[in-house]
Design a protein around this nucleic acid. Sequence first.
DNA 1: CCCCCTGTGTGCGTTTTCGCACACACAAAC
DNA 2: GTTTGTGTGTGCGAAAACGCACACAGGGGG
Lengths: 245, 245
Amino acid sequence: MVPADHSQVAKKNYLLASLPDKEFERILTHLSPVSFDLGKVLYESGDRLDYVYFPTTTIISLLYIMENGATAEIGVVGNDGILGIALFMGGDTTPNRAVIQSAGSAMKMKAADLKAEFTLGGVFHNLLLRYTQALITQISQTAVCNRLHSLEQQLCRWLLLSHDRLDSDKLVMTHDLISNMLGVRREGVTLAAQKLGTRGLIKNVRGTITVLDRQGLENAVCECYSVVNAEYNRLLGRGISRTFA
Amino acid sequence: MVPADHSQVAKKNYLLASLPDKEFERILTHLSPVSFDLGKVLYESGDRLDYVYFPTTTIISLLYIMENGATAEIGVVGNDGILGIALFMGGDTTPNRAVIQSAGSAMKMKAADLKAEFTLGGVFHNLLLRYTQALITQISQTAVCNRLHSLEQQLCRWLLLSHDRLDSDKLVMTHDLISNMLGVRREGVTLAAQKLGTRGLIKNVRGTITVLDRQGLENAVCECYSVVNAEYNRLLGRGISRTFA
DNA sequence: CCCCCTGTGTGCGTTTTCGCACACACAAAC
DNA sequence: GTTTGTGTGTGCGAAAACGCACACAGGGGG
């Protein structure tokens, strides 16, 4: 039996929320809530996936770890999506680490249950594939942005991606953490964050960045951000961006 | 009726070649050969996809074009895969341009036929999804490589990716073309190519780069290359790399 | 045969980011 | 209230790429 409040919690995840009632009810019976602390590693590179996760309030970062220990984020999953696409794509695993970037909750689902639901075809199957395409666009734009844009622009993009997936304007994250995500030096992040602070867009205080002027950030960000949002909007029927929501 | 030689030509594409006989024969009836010149644009960003393509000897580049005209490659498709995954992923289109990076041939298939085959589920459906996951890994490593590695390493990676997808050691491409793919200056490519030439790995002559020492290139390349190859190998049952083949 | 076009080589100064070294600063713990 | 740690500010020189300018070179077409 599913506790009544699970339904409300689960609907915080846009993917689940966009399911027709019938499918939603069925999927719901396979879901159970979990919560995670900052830094928790959900999948290690190459791990077999026992569960997939539909974030409700947490944000998960997909990272690649180089042999020399350097890291770079390739994408981010929040209440817009699902962690564990490799399972239904047929690979069972990926060469990436999945780590909690912002503490919070998710609904988890057993790998076997997800595979069974996916195999049924239909709405859920198609929704997962469309989400995967949106994620591909996000990863693609990360590649482009890494190549062509300044650290400051990338920081804006990253802050907006996080802000979109949170209820609060307070992002609990150190410059050091962000530098690992962006694959740059910590000092570089500090410098860029200072510039944004001077312009009144954000406030930097030990361990948290507060978004003060969301519109200002959107003006400062590169086109990569809106390209990704437009695709989420087009493919999943609603934008994840707070602006477009 | 399908000409007899179509079958042999089609099998140059690894994806088609790995289909069981029954599926292969059925798919084959939907395929017809085409050939393309260098620079031909198959899809423009946002275009509706009328056909998908299974390259046999051509190589296709997936590019993002910035508003200011700057370009960067996000992935490459050759005889290892299929161009047009957005079709079965449910998006019908992507924000990228697909352009011929190396002249040659492909088998084309009508969008509607592909969708119908995909919807049947089964082997073809699963194969396309596994290929898509391999492509995701390729795009992911492009993002990582763009962030963390030197131009010279990236050039090595790019040359190997091309070499893997060609029969010849002669890559017909100018430094300028490569610079557009890598999203860097033409001069930067010239400089990096000179260094590789000095080390005897390649030979640079007006408009073509000849691979002289494949093993040497593999020693010079970053880990990104082997990560992608390992995934292709794992997901699709054989490596695309000439080394692993 | 010479011209012209495209592709390549080279040389600047400039900008961005890096790598390292440290000083400072806040907050919880003792 | 002092200590201890973690997070942030700052200042170099070095390295990698950039933007621009232009010289040269090969090869096909007039």
